[in-house]
């Protein structure tokens, strides 16, 4: 089994990635954001544990039409399909265009203001909890 990301692997991955992540619902297909490009190398480099299943799956679907490939791989080797799907979806949701479309800025800083009175204090919501009184069982007297 080859573990090099050559042109054939990229082409096969691109084709099945478009079945898993097609252009639909206002979102681009996987290939439109180049999941088969340099990001593929980056992900396999980051997650070498996925490589064996990824390349096994890609090898198994050689020559098959992409839709047939996905269905057959899901039946014969779902672990391989899961690895290909994870690589494809991880690559897809790392792309700025995709993130913008789903409204995801990434894990960014959003500091709060520690001096601000919390809304739930100001509007009395928390007072309702306090008004119900203690709910713990105290330590029994010895």
């Amino acid at each position: 089994m080859s573990t090099a990301i050559d042109g054939g692997v990229r082409a096969a991955f691109r084709a099945i990635a478009d079945v898993l992540i097609p252009a639909a619902e206002g979102m681009p297909a996987a290939s439109e954001v180049d999941v088969h490009g340099p990001v593929l190398d980056r992900i396999i480099g980051l997650r070498p544990d996925l490589a064996e299943r990824f390349f096994r799956g890609i090898g198994a679907i050689a020559g098959l039409p992409p839709e047939t490939a996905a269905v057959q791989l899901n039946a014969a080797d779902p672990q391989a399909l899961a690895a290909i799907g994870l690589v494809a979806s991880a690559a897809y949701y790392m792309q700025p265009r995709v993130r913008e479309l789903i409204g995801y800025p990434g894990q960014e800083k959003r500091p709060g203001n520690p001096d601000e009175t919390p809304e739930y204090v100001a509007n009395g919501m928390l007072q309702q909890v306090l008004d119900r009184g203690p709910i713990f069982k105290p330590t029994p007297k010895a």
Partner: peptide
Amino acid sequence: GMVEDVWGENLH
């Protein structure tokens, strides 16, 4: 599960 359960349009 089927491919389309979590992939394809359903993923979006």
